[in-house]
Every structure is written in structure tokens, then in C-alpha cells.
């Protein structure tokens, strides 16, 4: 009888130990593998924004600027650069509205001393507005530019 109680007790203790271990591991895992799959697989802009920022509301702001060509000759390589003068930047996201998966790329700022600028080269299937979102101080700001594409670059 006592043996049985002892076994039960040790079993419970080991589950607690496993849970604690997982809890300790969690913070590093969040940094290493926080790829926002829901946002990348979303088929509409609003869904992607809700998945990434938790809200689809964004405010047009002149403190967010983007540098991109008005016309891209090759849709496979469209350089874009987002700059912001906002402080406390938490995340930057780029959404190509008419791509098969609109959510293109994003930057998550996890420590101080980063943010303010993000540049990447993106693929565009067709002429589309490209929206850039910046989350700063809990609010989402955006800017947009239409980029004309003569040759699509999304494969197919």
C-alpha cells in the first residue's frame, strides 16, 4: 500500500519537473522559432495582419516612409526599404496585396537598439499596392505604394 502511494507521488513529482523544464526552455524557443506561420499562410491582408499584429487596424502615418521603385522591370526582385522615425518599434511587416500569399516578410524587434529600418527584396506576381506596417508603442502605422510590374516573378 505504501509502495503504491510512493509510486504515485514520484510520478507526480516527475511531471512537475518536466513542466518546469519546458517552462525554462520556452523563452529561448520563442526567440529561435517564432516564425508566424498563420500570417504567412493567410490568403487575405486582414487575416495576415490579425495573425501577426493581433489587429487589422492601421493608421496612415507620414512617420513611416518606404523607398521602392514605381515600376519594377523584374517582378522576381523588387527592392524595398522601410524607414521610420517612430520610437519603440516592435515590428515591421510588408504586405504585397495581390500576391498568392499577401504577407511577404516582417521584422520582429526583440531587443533595444534595433529597428527604424528594414530592407528586403521581394517577389511580386503582378502590379499591386505594397503596404508597409510598423508597430510602435502598441499602435500600428502604415504606408503604401503601388508598384507596377511588367514581368511577374512568383512562378507558376
Amino acid at each position: 500500500m505504501k509502495r503504491r502511494i510512493f509510486l504515485k507521488g514520484s510520478l507526480a513529482a516527475s511531471t512537475i519537473a518536466v513542466a518546469a523544464g519546458a517552462g525554462l526552455l520556452a523563452p529561448t524557443r520563442v526567440l529561435a522559432a517564432a516564425w508566424p506561420e498563420a500570417a504567412f499562410t493567410a490568403k487575405t491582408e486582414a487575416d495576415a495582419l490579425t495573425a501577426f499584429f493581433g489587429t487589422a487596424d492601421a493608421q496612415q502615418s507620414d512617420q513611416v516612409t518606404m523607398k521602392a521603385p514605381l515600376q519594377a522591370e523584374n517582378g522576381a526582385v523588387v527592392p524595398i526599404k522601410i524607414m521610420t522615425s517612430l520610437s519603440d518599434v516592435e515590428a515591421i511587416a510588408v504586405v504585397t496585396v495581390k500576391n498568392p500569399s499577401p504577407y511577404t516578410t516582417s521584422l520582429q524587434v526583440t531587443g533595444s537598439g534595433a529597428g527604424g529600418m528594414y530592407s528586403a527584396r521581394i517577389k511580386m506576381g503582378q502590379t499591386s499596392p505594397v503596404n508597409c506596417y510598423v508597430k510602435a508603442g502598441g499602435k500600428v502605422y502604415m504606408t503604401s505604394q503601388e508598384i507596377k510590374v511588367t514581368v511577374g516573378g512568383c512562378g507558376g
Partner: peptide
């Protein structure tokens, strides 16, 4: 780690990523 870029299939091949 100060920031993490999330890339998807919509980023061009041989990606050139810039941050400040």
C-alpha cells in the same frame, strides 16, 4: 538577439536583408 526577420516564399532568391 536584438531582432528577428521573418521571411516567406515572397522574398526573392538570395535574399538581401537590411536592418539598422
Amino acid at each position: 538577439v536584438v531582432s528577428q526577420a521573418n521571411l516567406g516564399p515572397g522574398v526573392s532568391k538570395n535574399p538581401l536583408i537590411g536592418i539598422s
